[in-house]
Nucleic acid binder design. Structure first.
Length: 477
DNA sequence: ATGTCC
């Protein structure tokens, strides 16, 4: 382990105050011995830097999929006091409300007799890749409405059913959304992209439930061994990217006006109560709502393909749950000063609320919210459930996925995409992408093993495994 | 992540 880091227990480590000058609270991260070699010193430095921001509560946190990002580490969680704290675009990331959802079906693995044909049909239906454009023709008013209303807009427009709404975190809508601070340019970029997958680590997968760890909870989530599910991983496309770019520019100078000194320019921030902070918060929430609509429209497209190819009724393909990976939002948590409201930034981290909370949908309330953890291309994904331990230790948060260990450029040089594709096919996984380069960038070797990351959050008690999912087919940008 | 450098 790095010098100056203290071990708390077998999977938790502390970055003490003083690790970098100006820390207000310690840093804490979760990591096992076998993942220790993946830890980047830069990411730990970033974790410590976050602890310098005003109003930070208790700890600057990171999950076992920690790696260095823009300002804040990816895998980072930080809660800022609603009254004295700040909001920072670096704590959310460029892909606002990048997230993942799981759609259940009545199909079994042996119903998928022609995986190639199914993958090709999905690839034709779901626009994929950088600059992909949607078949939806939206007015400026439609776009504003979806950013304000979130998933409900999509359901009312015919792209889903009522149950889809309650099975999204926050019911698929942040009510802080404000389209006024969303620039014309962001509107223009978002206009043709609602219902498109994008590129990079975004994907659409056909998966089979191949292991059940907690049968009772699996049943509550509507999941059973051998069942076919579809997983969608994507975000707010060019719209969220533009919102982040626009507001970073404003906040890079705003923090000085409020006497906030930051150890890294990438930690640009403003008080939650300032006009600049409120503007970013409103625009970020609008982009988050757009991302939920994006995943909802893709869900609709997947359901239509399955209706056509397998004759399944729309209602037989329920949304299990939808989680956000990159978002900041107001939540109430326990603190030394009692229950208080905080702006919880999760950047490459997943909310993992435990049993009994009103934020967890009624159908799942007795067990805690579903936590969906995508694996890298060709590796297992998991469904876990949130816990009371997460509420106590991490503001109700857990990891978000495997986490990169190799840069895109390095991955492209390491193995040609054609070879990665061939290797996955040998394991029975059909991959369809816009290019071989896109496959090379996302090669399994470029990521930590999802199994190891999930094992850390299990051992820490931040969320507990319910089922494991094996990919049969992957669509990649 | 991203009209992967307006």
């Amino acid at each position: 382990m790095l010098a100056g880091i203290q071990q708390i227990d077998e999977v938790e480590w502390e970055v003490p105050v003083g690790y970098v000058p100006g820390m207000r609270v310690p840093g804490r991260f979760f990591l096992s011995d076998d993942l220790a070699e993946t830890l980047e010193p830069d990411a730990v430095h970033q974790l410590a830097n976050v602890a310098c921001l005003p109003g930070i509560e208790r700890y600057s946190l990171a999950m076992p999929d920690i790696h260095s990002g823009y300002g804040f580490p990816i895998g980072g969680v930080a809660a800022f006091d609603a009254e004295s704290g700040v909001i920072s675009p670096g704590g959310v990331g460029y892909d606002i409300n990048c997230g993942v959802r799981l759609i259940a079906t009545p199909l079994r693995a042996d119903d998928i007799t022609q995986p190639r044909a199914l993958i090709e049909e999905l690839f034709r239906t779901v626009p994929t890749g950088v600059g992909a454009e949607s078949s939806l023709r939206l007015s400026h008013h439609d776009l504003a409405a979806m950013m304000t209303e979130g998933v409900r807009w999509a359901v009312e427009a015919g792209y889903g059913v009522e149950n889809d709404i309650s099975h999204c975190e926050e019911s698929g809508r942040l009510d802080a959304a404000d389209t006024a601070p969303v620039s014309k340019k962001a509107f223009q970029r978002g206009m043709p992209q609602a219902g498109t997958l994008g590129s990079g680590n975004h994907f659409l997968e056909i998966q089979e439930v191949d292991a059940v760890f907690d049968p009772e909870t699996a049943e509550a989530f509507g999941l059973s061994p051998g069942q076919i599910c579809f997983m969608v991983h994507c975000g707010s496309r060019g719209l969220g990217h533009q919102v982040c770019t626009d507001h970073l520019r404003v906040l890079e100078s705003a923090h000085k006006r409020y006497g906030i000194s930051i150890p890294d320019r990438q930690l640009a921030c403003a008080p939650l109560s300032s006009p600049e902070g409120e503007a970013y918060f409103g625009a970020m929430a609008a982009a988050a709502n757009y991302a939920w609509v994006n995943r909802q429209v893709i869900t609709h497209q997947v359901r239509q393909v399955l209706q056509r190819m397998f004759g399944i009724a729309y209602e037989e393909m329920p949304l299990v749950y939808d989680v956000a990976h990159n978002v900041a939002k107001m939540e109430e948590h326990s603190s030394e000063r009692g229950r208080r409201r905080f702006c919880v930034h999760r950047k490459g981290a997943t909310r993992a609320f435990g049993p009994g909370l009103p934020e967890v949908p009624a159908a799942y309330r007795s067990v805690g919210q579903p936590v969906i953890i995508p694996g890298s291309m060709g590796s297992h994904s998991y469904v876990l459930h949130g816990t009371a331990t997460a509420m106590e230790r991490t503001f109700g948060s857990t990891c978000h996925g495997a986490g990169r260990v190799m840069s895109r450029t390095k991955a492209k040089k390491a193995t040609p995409g054609s070879e990665v594709r061939k290797h996955l096919l040998e394991q029975g996984i059909v991959v369809r992408a816009t290019s071989d380069a896109a496959i090379a960038e996302e090669a399994p070797e470029a990521y930590k093993e999802s199994d190891k990351v999930v094992d850390v959050v299990r051992r820490a008690g931040l969320s507990l495994p319910v089922v494991r999912l094996r990919p049969l087919g992957v669509i990649k940008g």
